[in-house]
């Protein structure tokens, strides 16, 4: 060690210079609940199970999202629609239980890709932190969007104009 290194003092000063220098830099963090960052329109956050224009659930519990899911986060139990429930479910089969384990989910969006009924979408909402692990298993009460048309979740930005144009074809009317 040289004399300069042995007295330590210049090294301490150099360290302090770096530390105090950071005080005057622009902060890289934001005060989260009050300030939020801007999200991309196609950010993949919490899922939503969409209703159709008449407020009926789109999901028919076909299981394609669950088989596409690389994390095996999705489980469902199907049930048959009874007479008189036509205003609730669009097709004769529906998901009686639909659960996504948000701790398992990697938010890859494969479920959205796999869905033949345009029922599941990822949204810009975030999954909230919890104290208990079992609270992260989201059921239909947290996933299905509200019945009230004003409170529906808009996913139109996730679909490119080409996709929206394609869906206008009457052969694909089951997905409108």
């Amino acid at each position: 060690m040289s004399f300069r290194e042995r007295i330590y003092f210049p090294a301490i000063l150099n360290g302090m210079r770096i530390t105090f220098g950071h005080l005057f830099r622009r902060k890289t963090t934001v005060q989260y609940p009050e300030v939020t960052r801007q999200f991309s329109d196609i950010y993949r956050g919490k899922h939503v199970l969409k209703r159709d224009d008449q407020g009926r659930e789109r999901c028919t519990s076909c299981g394609l999202c669950a088989v596409a899911c690389p994390a095996e986060a999705i489980t469902m139990v199907s049930a048959e629609r009874k007479p008189g429930e036509e205003h609730l479910y669009r097709e004769e089969k529906y998901a009686a239980v639909y659960e996504i384990n948000m701790l398992r989910c990697v938010f890859c969006g494969d479920c959205e890709e796999a869905c033949p009924k345009e029922a599941i979408f990822l949204t810009t909402e975030l999954v909230k932190s919890e104290y208990q692990r079992d609270k992260f298993i989201y059921g239909k009460d947290q996933l299905v969007e509200p019945f009230d048309p004003a409170k529906r979740i808009d996913v139109s930005k996730r679909q490119t104009p080409a996709v929206l144009e394609f869906k206008k074809d009457k052969r694909y009317k089951h997905n409108v």
């Binding site: 519990s61 076909c62 299981g63 669950a66 088989v67 199907s78 048959e80």
Partner: peptide, 9 residues
């Protein structure tokens, strides 16, 4: 077996 499960599960 109607609507009980999907065959791939």
């Amino acid at each position: 077996f109607r609507f009980k499960s999907r065959v791939w599960f």
